[in-house]
């Protein structure tokens, strides 16, 4: 499959400060990629470099095998054929919804333009709002207009900059799925930027975790959660705790909660001290277990309680328990470990 976007060893700097450091990203046709990271990690800067708004100081960016950025040269944004959905949507307030959609279609014939606008209006379900102005629409509708406007000229890639950040939290995941469906239906390759991992999981096929300008891991949501490449990813994605352990041999690690079996993914030296990632679902509440832990905090999650437990040694782990098992803070409960994936860091 051909690569639509290829970002190789790209660095971006503002003045003397490097905000993106030798990052690689590759997207195949039709996939949705995501740059995930805390605010200030450089993800938006990287997206803007792909759009052509920021020059790069190292590496190259290719769009459909065309070189668009290299140090000292940046193809202008208007010549890249990229569609962009902005955080604040950036709808043109002086134009109607239909005029906003046809904005990028100046070179099309009037008829083709009309057909495309009608088609997009239907796609995003805004046919009735065609003649309205952006300020007359709700936030969700404005976002769909922004998406449709970016898709209208059939861009080579769709870039989305925190597209759901101004939305209600409950709406975000639903909108993310809707937007994913729309993008898939238009068969566009897309790159999304977000700090919200649930949004990333809901939308993206491939996710890259960025921190302090560096790419920590590139993979599917499943991989990031269950096979984090380093401590940062382990900590940033999902919940969990790191528990001290000792490597017995290349398949076994001894921890306070017992032995963990599994293939050692990081070629750890037998006898060395490591830290093992323990997810809340790895810790099972079992009254029969000889292992006891004290409840420090609990959070009601509907079907489950999320307990923060303190072990004998003072180490903390998280534990998910069905919510009909009620325990009070300070109570001691029996737990045992049931980990499928072994993730350990030296």
């Amino acid at each position: 499959m051909s690569k639509v976007l290829e970002v190789q060893q790209v660095s971006v700097a503002f003045g003397s400060q490097r905000v993106v450091h030798e990052v690689d990203v590759a997207l195949e046709a039709g996939t949705i990629g995501c740059l995930l990271g805390p605010s200030g990690c450089g993800k938006t800067t990287l997206l803007r470099a792909v759009a052509g708004f920021e020059p790069i100081i190292n590496g190259t960016i290719h769009l459909e095998e065309q070189l668009v950025s290299r140090p000292g040269w940046t193809l202008a944004p208007e010549q890249r054929r990229v569609g962009m959905v902005f955080q604040d949507f950036a709808l043109f307030p002086h134009l109607t919804v239909a005029k906003n959609l046809s904005f990028g279609l100046r070179d099309w014939t009037a008829k083709a333009r009309q057909v495309r606008v009608d088609e997009l209006l239907e796609l995003v379900g805004l046919t009735a709002a065609a003649k309205q102005y952006p300020h007359q629409l709700s936030g969700g509708m404005q976002q769909r207009v922004a998406l449709a406007r970016a898709l209208a000229p059939r861009p080579r890639i769709l870039l989305l900059d925190e597209p759901f950040s101004s939305m209600d939290a409950e709406l975000r995941e639903q909108l993310a799925r809707e937007v994913r469906d729309l993008i898939k239906r238009e068969q566009v390759t897309a790159l999304l930027v977000t700090h919200d991992q649930l949004e990333a999981f809901a939308m993206a096929d491939q996710i890259g975790v960025l921190a302090a300008g560096k790419m920590h891991q590139w993979g599917s949501g499943f991989e990031l959660y269950h096979e984090p490449a380093d401590r940062f990813v382990a900590d940033f994605i999902g919940q969990g705790a790191l528990l001290a352990g000792r490597v017995l041999d290349h398949a076994q690690i001894e921890t306070e909660l017992g032995l963990i079996d599994g293939v050692n993914p990081h070629h750890l030296q037998p006898g060395s001290q490591v830290e093992v990632l323990i997810r809340p679902d790895d810790v099972i509440h079992d009254d029969a277990s000889p292992q006891q832990a004290m409840i420090l905090e609990r959070a009601f999650r509907g079907a489950e309680y999320l307990y923060t437990l303190k072990l004998e040694s003072g180490a903390k782990v998280l534990c998910l328990v069905q919510s009909h098992h009620q325990h009070a803070i300070g109570e001691r409960i029996g737990v045992r470990l049931e980990a499928d994936h072994l993730v350990a860091f030296a």
């Binding site: 944004p77 208007e78 054929r81 962009m84 902005f86 955080q87 604040d88 990028g104 406007r149 000229p153």
Partner: peptide, 22 residues
Amino acid sequence: RPSLDEAGRSLGLTPRGVLWRI
């Protein structure tokens, strides 16, 4: 807002086009 300029650019407008049309 600067994002309006950028939206125009990403939709194929030159800087002069942004000035004239937005």
